[in-house]
Simulated scan of single mutants.
Amino acid sequence: MRRLKFLLRPGWVILAALVGIFAYLCFTVLAPWQLGKNTDTERRNDLIKASLNADPIPVQDLLSPGRPTAEDDWRRVTVTGTYVPASDVLVRLRSNGGDPAYEVLTPVRLPDGRSVLVDRGYVDAINGTKPPTSIPAPPPGQVTVDGRIRLSEGTIPDRPPIDEDGYRQVYSIDSGQVSAVLGTPLTSGYVQLAENQPGGLDPVSLPQLDAGPYLSYGLQWLAFGIMAPLGLAYFVRAELLERRKEKAGKPALVSASPAPASPAPSQTTEDKLADRYGKRR
């Protein structure tokens, strides 16, 4: 355990905490988020595929208390009734083929007196973000239209309805909110019109029936959550090996400075005299 004391240093403690938090978020937030989106997309695709071969049913069959439900979403329906005049509501911040657009919502009053909200389709924005000066009115009198039942999108917090450029406008398709804007009771959910229907505009197309990248993204976050602790373990092991090498020690270095020379033996008096007279001779 003494070898692991270095892990108590602030730098290692912070690194371990960051790795732990990241791995926790990968397994509990990021991966479930993407995998959940993949599940929702697959469920939506299954409902749309099932509806392609199903015959439309009267919308009244899906307007009983508590309906429509998630299993009713995208069902093909027919709506017979009368468009409520002067009751258009625009949905802001939409895109049609990559261009800014608005969706036009208009209630249809059913023979039993109830009203269902109908998404008539797109109108293109002008001058970048402004709604058109006029929107084609739906035909008067009784009509029968085909479409798909949709669940309300819900409201957007801090984005209340507005009255601008001569139109009542909302930021999402929510039958409860539109009901409050118009002062008209509406059934739950709404109907998205199909192509070439009375009162229809540029229709909202069906989403592409592919799963999208959500599954691969979810698996990637799971992989990151596994790799992060493994990476930390790798660095801890590398640090231990380095410390083991240092503890083993390195061979002593030989001094590069030359050893001091031994002093020459001192000459005796006789040697000095011999050298002196010898040199003279």
Rank of each mutant, 00 (worst) to 15 (best):
M1K: 14
M1H: 14
L4A: 12
K5T: 11
R9D: 08
G11T: 10
W12H: 05
I14D: 00
A16M: 15
A17K: 00
A17F: 11
L18D: 01
I21G: 02
F27H: 00
F27K: 00
T28E: 09
P32L: 08
N38F: 07
N38W: 08
T39I: 14
T41E: 11
R44V: 10
R44S: 14
I48Y: 03
K49H: 14
A50P: 02
P58T: 05
L62V: 12
L63H: 07
G66C: 03
R67P: 06
P68A: 04
A70E: 10
A70N: 12
D72F: 06
D72N: 13
V77Y: 00
T80P: 02
T80V: 05
T80Q: 14
D88W: 08
V91L: 13
R94G: 08
N96L: 10
P100F: 12
R109H: 05
P111V: 07
V116A: 00
V116P: 00
V118A: 01
V118Y: 00
D119C: 06
R120V: 03
A125F: 08
I126K: 15
N127S: 13
G128V: 09
T129M: 09
P132N: 06
S134G: 04
I135A: 06
A137M: 11
P138Q: 09
P139Y: 01
Q142L: 12
T144K: 09
L151K: 13
E153G: 01
G154Y: 06
I156W: 08
P157G: 07
P160H: 00
P160K: 02
E164P: 04
D165P: 04
D165R: 13
G166W: 10
G166C: 11
G166L: 11
Y167G: 12
V170L: 12
D174G: 08
G176H: 14
S179L: 06
V181L: 08
L182T: 04
T184G: 03
G189M: 05
L193N: 08
N196S: 15
P198D: 09
G199H: 11
G200T: 06
D202Y: 10
V204L: 09
P207R: 07
P207T: 05
L209S: 07
G212F: 11
P213D: 11
L215C: 03
L219E: 08
Q220M: 09
W221C: 02
G225K: 04
G225L: 06
I226H: 00
M227Y: 11
L230W: 15
L230I: 15
F235W: 05
F235I: 08
E239K: 06
L240S: 01
R243M: 07
R244H: 04
A248M: 12
G249M: 01
S262V: 14
Q267M: 15
T269Q: 15
L273C: 04
